[in-house]
């Protein structure tokens, strides 16, 4: 998906996006379909894409953005190959969510809501992931839970994801 974005020039993307919008022009009911296809085309949904869709369908940017942020399927940022979700639920928060995010920031220069320039990792903060006994915890790629984290353990965890 992302490869597509880097191959096509921006003008080309604008044209292709217009083709996706065309069948729904002036029809707010097509929003979800258009967003899905647009994300497949561009890889994520940056502001310029949202504006083009808003104007094409005749809805406000607020409407488009509200829908995008409601569904976790849609992404506002380019996605990395691996997604790190750091838990900020009450148990983790008390035991050291801050420590985990600071350590990751020091290691990868990566803040929540961002992707590394080499597209390796995307970082996000989430609510309780149901591993409170292992707090502080994070989950990678939605399946691998890493718990009882300490600053010196984190580099080895990240090593496992290329």
């Amino acid at each position: 998906m992302v490869a597509c974005a880097s191959n096509a020039s921006n003008d080309e993307l604008i044209k292709q996006l217009d083709k996706i919008i065309d069948p729904y022009r002036g029809n707010p009911g097509g929003l979800i379909q258009v967003l899905t296809k647009a994300q497949n085309l561009v890889g994520y949904l940056p502001k310029w894409v949202q504006i083009q869709i808003a104007e094409g369908l005749g809805v406000s940017l607020q409407e488009v953005y509200g829908v995008i942020t409601f569904y976790t399927f849609f992404s506002l940022i380019p996605r990395g190959r691996h997604k790190i979700s750091v838990c900020a639920g009450t148990a983790c928060y008390v035991k050291g969510t801050k420590m985990v995010t600071t350590t990751i920031k020091d290691l990868l220069d990566l803040k929540p809501g961002q992707t590394t320039p080499d597209s390796r990792f995307t970082l996000e903060i989430v609510r309780c992931i149901g591993a409170c006994g292992l707090a502080p915890a994070m989950i990678i790629d939605g399946k691998d839970v890493h718990g009882r984290l300490e600053p010196e353990l984190i580099p080895a965890v990240l090593e496992q994801y290329a």
Binding site: S60, Q62, E63, Y65, G66, T69, F70
Partner: peptide, 8 residues
Amino acid sequence: QALCAENR
């Protein structure tokens, strides 16, 4: 429509 609900 200046406002929307963002996130969940």
